[in-house]
Design a protein around this nucleic acid. Sequence first.
DNA 1: TCCTGTGAACTCATTCACAGCC
DNA 2: GGCTGTGAATGAGTTCACAGGA
Lengths: 229, 229
Amino acid sequence: MPQSRPRIIPEATVARLAVYLRVLAGLADGGRSHVSSGELASAAGVNPAGLRKDLSYLGPCGVRGVGYSVSGLRDRLTDALGGERSRPCVLIGIGRLGSALADYAGFASRGFEFVGLLDTDPATVGHRVGGLQVRPVQELEAVVAETHATIGVITTPAEVAQSVCDRLVSVGVRSILNFAPVALTVPAGVDVRKVDLSVELQVLAFLDQQRDGTPPLLAPLRPAQGVAR
Amino acid sequence: MPQSRPRIIPEATVARLAVYLRVLAGLADGGRSHVSSGELASAAGVNPAGLRKDLSYLGPCGVRGVGYSVSGLRDRLTDALGGERSRPCVLIGIGRLGSALADYAGFASRGFEFVGLLDTDPATVGHRVGGLQVRPVQELEAVVAETHATIGVITTPAEVAQSVCDRLVSVGVRSILNFAPVALTVPAGVDVRKVDLSVELQVLAFLDQQRDGTPPLLAPLRPAQGVAR
DNA sequence: TCCTGTGAACTCATTCACAGCC
DNA sequence: GGCTGTGAATGAGTTCACAGGA
């Protein structure tokens, strides 16, 4: 089977491929059949040459002088990112943030399905969130076993995040998305990605201050994520 | 006034400084008076040498052979990140995610205060979220003027994010945190940071697949954010 | 001896510039 | 002519290794 050539794909590129895929979905809805790297790059907020380099990791997927086929590229990207198979996830910590994630439409459309919601609070357990009933965190191991979840999302308070993480790892979960503001320690072979919302704000505030607070000292800002021109 | 030497601080470093600050707060609560770079680095999930390099941008702040004073370093970091002044933020889009952010305790403790919540939905307008009444998005300009907000947080659907962004910029907001899955276009001088939750999951799923799906082809993974050993 | 501070080496990522094909 | 694919150049960020002070 002619699986695209087994090149190595940098993680930064993988993140952008997911973005391109979303932009392509929009273009397809709009009835477009072709795009140039320039147009796609501008919609994704990246440099055109960088976009072409990203795509080149999948092998040639465009037509010189013409551009890319929207549907063709879409298939190629979907495939590279793991196909359309559904990915069962468990979510631990059903507070405000957890509830928000539990029925965030953006996940389902990308093939991520929450198959288990867990919390310690008796007032939360039993409630339905995003079409699923919240179960007591004691059942974590059982839920993972039942559902064969491979991804764990942690939205608990910082104090318990490590212990939840350990329990996930002990039942075979090797991909964890952590929203708790702590660094998790995991064995080799387990991937943790961390999203730290207050750090994002803090960086923004710093840049803000740099601009007009202390004019002489200016950090080497990235040229703004959008088209800053 | 001996303001720390005006060196240039890379953005990646700024993000980590915020993390160190949080770890230090924990140590201070625990009554610790000193830390070594090794201990601090392990709690923050980074390399010790990197941590020292990060801190070196603020000028010498430790004692050789001893380590860092917890309170001293804390003050230094607080100062570098813009002091303790409160930062007024407006939040547009009070859906699940918006509501979660609106009363996320982690923000207030870092000096971020939401002073305006806005939404289009008549069913949402008027409700109180996190101690604040939601106002109609038509009043965006008025709210920013009243409150002198300098940071805007966008949690609207993708379709309206750009127009909300434009309106924020037009009334002088120059720091924007964007949760909507689109690349925002802004004039030079405005900073946008993007948080894309489904991309995080997608990258995680990719790594997962790489591990056991296609053994021969392995991406050059970063050595996991925690202490992967 | 211990641990910080930092130049130097290295790895990773982005950007440029142009060759190649339609 | 136009746009893709990609080596080469540049730049940013991380790690190493050691000098230097308590």
